[in-house]
């Protein structure tokens, strides 16, 4: 699809700004998203190309605004729901429960 991910040759994003002494992960949540994405890939419900496709389907404005692991998280949630491994309702309920449980 002609999505926001296909960005080779686009102008206007500004300079590259490499981060000196960059850590492998920025915060615990990135580690979890990385590990969950790799691990669930082995469940056999989708292949690597379906995984890429799920990330490409993130809304274009959202795609460009998000950090890379945010895109991974969005893609992972999409796949898990699409394949019926979890439901969006379950996820929302769990989030509400955990937000309430840890004020």
């Amino acid at each position: 699809m002609n999505g926001a991910h296909d960005m080779g040759g686009m102008d206007g994003f500004g300079p590259i700004n490499p981060e000196p002494d960059e850590p492998v992960f920025h915060g615990e949540w990135e580690k979890r998203v990385f590990a969950m994405t790799v691990a669930t890939g082995f469940l056999g419900h989708w292949n690597i190309d379906m995984g890429r496709q799920a990330r490409e389907q993130v809304d274009p404005a959202e795609y460009l605004r998000s950090s890379y692991y945010e895109k991974w998280l969005q893609g992972l949630e999409t796949l898990l729901v699409e394949k019926g491994l979890i439901t969006a309702e379950e996820l929302a309920a769990r989030k509400a429960e955990m937000a309430g449980g840890a004020p």
Binding site: M1, N2, D6, Q53, E56
Partner: peptide, 13 residues
């Protein structure tokens, strides 16, 4: 090619 599905041929090429 401009498929609605996934492809790895970037637009610029």
């Amino acid at each position: 090619l401009n498929p609605l599905g996934h492809t790895r041929a970037p637009r610029y090429i």
